[in-house]
Design a protein around this nucleic acid. Structure first.
Length: 497
RNA sequence: GCGCCCUUCGUCUAUCGGUUAGGACGGCAGCCUUUCACGUUGCAGAGACGGGUUCGACUCCCGUAGGGCGCGCCA
């Protein structure tokens, strides 16, 4: 059975959707509204990305609002971390970030209006009474909800010395309809929505009131957020209706789960975005990966941010939760690394070094000549790196100083007739011109002359030059290192004695 | 407990009543090869289950099972 407010709800939604579809002069305004109780986690990052993409796609704006009405848990450090996280991801917002707490007076004003309209009432229950109410309901197998004790009670019965809260007088029959752009039509029975507190006893607003007032005042046209807010959407819809405000278009996107399918926890995926930066992922790769979690464009897997903006649409968002898959992220990141311009990638590496162990020392050693070497080595290096950490490790041979430390595999290579190979090769290299084709020709000729495979010389060379068993193509390494340094490193390991 | 939502290869997904159910990551095998990668070729791999509707269901409806989210003077 439908009541008037339900129908009004549906009507409002319909009007709004039609308005957007017919291209009425209502520019799209989205918002990202994190609460500053910690870092920007990956789910929040994707929500921000979707809001950003939707706004950009429609030539609109994305606003940023910090939901800091919980004074106990909000911290300025968390605000900084969130702004830094968004910035790292390359997501910009329009205008200044709005502090929700700063708008408390306006929220109070609306609470008073609701009171005056008879759509809210004062409730004098104490926290303890509410706890009892909940546990009693639980024990009796009833939903843990407020029993409406003060809903219709005369205010004259108010106990002395108790600061009341203000509760929203929610409809108790009928249903609330949300025409969700991702979830479809969602119908919530009003009997399951109790009279939520909109103003605390200390006079501060609570979340559900603040969001509605702020979204309305900020002109938000589209609310894109996680499905965990779906039931809040029904409550908020009722507040919009009570205030006779237009209900924004809503889109509740699925959540991201950890690799095991369970809720994200610190153990697996719920890391701050800066943790992904520290793991050596590129923001562009991160954006691409995140976009593919819950959104798709046919069979496309790799696309530029510009393409993402062009293609993004709420209708292409899925409804089911996705698991976070590091293997795929890593693969994508490797693709982005390989396709990033050498100079640009070097800058990314330099920007990354402060955040990784051993990075700062490496950073200090980067002068003009090291820069040149890194650029020269980059094509071979980036081919083998999936993350900036890989790149840093791969570049290490450029930074080490003689005599090089040999890792286990390098030692084995050298011990196993490697030193003899180097000994015989040394004069050949000394006689060669110092460029890759000439060096390769010289070594190959030597190998043929001695009847040995190229590998018999290449691997010992690699060990002597890098101290490891893997590196970019060995002739490129010789060139990047230069004649003098290369010959010295080889001599260090050759069995000349 | 109540409400809402979800369910295609191991993972992310395409499909919008008619396909040998496609792609990507991962896996396996081969090729390339001075190492490691890259690249490339091939292989294995999916519609949770049960009922309907229909000439025809992955696709629509109902139920079951499993999973998720919500039910704060948190957001």
């Amino acid at each position: 059975m439908l009541n008037a407010s339900t129908m009004l709800s549906a009507g409002h939604q319909q009007l709004h959707i039609m308005g957007v579809r017919s291209g009425m002069p209502s520019p799209v305004v989205t918002r990202f509204a994190p609460s500053p109780t910690g870092y920007l986690h990956i789910g929040g990052g994707r929500t921000a990305l979707f809001n950003w993409l939707f706004a950009k796609h429609n030539g609109g704006k994305m606003l940023l609002r910090i939901e800091d009405t919980d004074r106990e848990r909000s911290t300025p450090e968390a605000v900084d971390a969130i702004l830094a996280g968004l910035t790292w991801l390359g997501l910009s917002w329009d205008g200044d970030a709005v502090s929700q707490a700063a708008r408390a007076p306006r929220h109070r004003e609306v609470a008073e209006q609701l009171l005056a309209k008879g759509r809210a009432y004062r409730c004098y229950c104490t926290a303890e009474e509410l706890d009892e109410m909940r546990s009693l309901a639980q024990a009796e197998g009833r939903p843990p909800r407020y029993n409406g004790m003060w809903r219709d009670r005369d205010p004259s019965q108010a106990p002395a010395g108790v600061n009341p809260v203000i509760r929203f007088k929610a409809p108790q029959t009928g249903e609330t309809v949300i025409e969700d752009q991702v979830q479809g039509r969602v119908v919530i029975p009003n009997k399951d929505l109790d009279d939520l507190i909109i103003l605390r006893s200390d006079g501060n607003p609570t979340y559900n009131l603040s969001v509605v007032v702020d979204d309305h005042d900020m002109g938000v046209t589209h609310i894109i957020r996680g499905v965990d807010h779906l039931t809040n959407a029904a409550r908020q819809t009722q507040i919009y209706l009570a205030m006779e405000w237009a209900v924004p278009v809503m889109a509740h996107i699925p959540l991201i789960h950890g690799p095991d399918g369970a809720k994200l926890s610190k153990r697996h995926g719920a890391l701050g975005v800066e943790a992904y930066r520290d793991m050596g992922y590129l923001p562009a790769a991160m954006r691409n990966y995140l976009a593919r979690l819950g959104w798709s464009h046919g069979d496309d897997e790799v696309f530029t941010t510009q393409q993402m903006v062009e293609w993004f649409g709420l209708e292409s968002c899925g409804k089911s939760a996705a698991r976070f898959d590091f293997a795929k992220l890593e693969n994508l990141n490797g693709h982005y690394m390989r396709h990033t311009d050498d100079a640009e990638l070097l800058e990314a590496l330099i920007g990354f070094l402060p955040h990784v162990e051993g990075g700062p020392q490496m950073l200090k050693a980067i002068d003009a000549s090291m820069r040149a070497k890194l650029i020269a080595a980059m094509p071979g290096l980036k081919e083998r790196a999936k993350t900036l950490i890989d790149l840093k490790i791969g570049a290490a041979y450029l930074f080490v100083t003689r005599p090089l430390n040999m890792d286990d595999k390098a030692q084995t290579i050298l011990a196993d007739s490697g030193r003899q190979a180097l000994h015989s090769l040394l004069p050949v290299l000394q006689a060669s011109e110092w460029n890759a084709p000439a060096l390769e020709a010289a070594v190959k000729a030597h190998a043929e002359a001695t009847g040995l495979k190229l590998g018999k010389f290449a691997q010992p060379l690699r060990a002597a030059l890098t101290g490891t068993s893997t590196s970019p193509g060995i002739f490129d390494v010789l060139v990047v290192l230069g004649r003098e340094e290369s010959l010295a490193r080889i001599a260090d390991q050759s069995a000349s004695a």
